[in-house]
Design a binder for these strands. Structure first.
Lengths: 195, 195
DNA sequence: GTCTATAAATCGATAGAC
DNA sequence: GTCTATCGATTTATAGAC
């Protein structure tokens, strides 16, 4: 006979703790969230929390890594590496919005980072690398004559980034499957196209 | 004879203290900035700071009021109240970017507000009122047939807001006098207009 | 209007039992 | 893997002298 099935204790894995923590970080703000807040939200004590994560900053780093991994995965997609600059650009914008929605809380946290700690500076630099890749494609597309130079390509890239990233301000997970298409259309065919 | 000119003591008025405080709030983040930090940056003690402002939140409120007053002043401009919906919209976007640059630190602070205190919820609601005004104009312009409905008007308004507000992420005060024109052109004629 | 001094609460983190 | 208990530093804010 096997020993009787052990009753599964409602134990927290590191994954679910991260999920809870990121939720708290977003609603309260990272700096305003205490380890006490996180523990209460997870239903364990502060000390137990420290058994799973070295501290507050370790939680933030894990969350930022997840967001950045999702973003950079888009750049490794076949459609992001083949075709005309504009086609690659549109593919990336589409994929970026997909990641934004799929990893909404993690990317939201990433986009709020201002670079005050070592962890935040690291995340900020990886973000800049991603943005620089996109800005390079915008410039290529202008030089190839695929898009007109209505404004300076560097400015266009910044506004494109601002438009796309602003999705996290109001998006809700799961809703609106057509969002990547809609945002790409707005970015490439104009937000307010003249009649 | 007049009495000899009194030597002006290097006293801080509430205005200059607010300026210093907003600078600290932006670089450190509001929650991560202590009254000690503010006092040190202003060159006075913590207690002296409390003589001018009731506390941290009073400073935040004063800063948010300044940003919101600047934004709403744009809606009272003649060009924002006369002409076609699209013309009014373009006038507002232009003026919004002007305010963004002129009141850069104050608006930056406003756009980071998430609504965790009473003061922040008040600011967030006034911001929403401003955005709702713009969204209404977008809808009017679509219904009047002035712009095509490439995407849902509500989505277009949100992306427009995201594009415009993202200027605070990289703008520097004083630089680039053509920015309001450039951003308006990008918003109305497309960021990446096809050749 | 500025200061020293301090209250009262909370912070991130650790020790050590079970 | 969870807990109780606590340390030492820091926080917002106040009391009261000058």
């Amino acid at each position: 006979m096997n020993s009787p099935a052990r009753v599964r204790r409602p134990s927290h894995g590191p994954g679910s703790l991260l999920e809870v923590a990121v939720g708290e970080f977003i609603t309260r703000g990272y700096d305003a969230t205490s380890m006490e807040d996180l523990s209460r939200a997870a239903g364990i004590t502060k000390s137990s929390f420290y058994h799973h994560f070295a501290g507050k900053e370790a939680l933030l780093r894990a969350a930022l890594e997840r967001a950045l991994d999702g973003l950079f995965a888009v750049l490794d997609t076949p459609g992001a590496r083949t075709g005309s600059p504009v086609a690659r650009l549109r593919h990336i914008v589409h994929g970026q919005v997909e990641v934004l929605v799929r990893e909404l809380p993690y990317v939201t946290l990433l986009l709020r980072v201002r670079g005050n700690t070592e962890t935040e500076r690291w995340a900020l630099e990886r973000r800049r690398t991603f943005d620089a890749h996109v800005a390079g494609l915008v410039r290529e597309a202008v030089e190839a004559g695929e898009i007109r130079a209505g404004v300076d390509p560097a400015l266009a890239a910044r506004l494109l980034s601002g438009l796309v990233n602003s999705v996290v301000e109001w998006a809700r997970p799961g809703r609106s499957a057509s969002l990547p298409d809609d945002v790409a259309r707005a970015a490439f065919e104009g937000i307010l196209p003249a009649s």
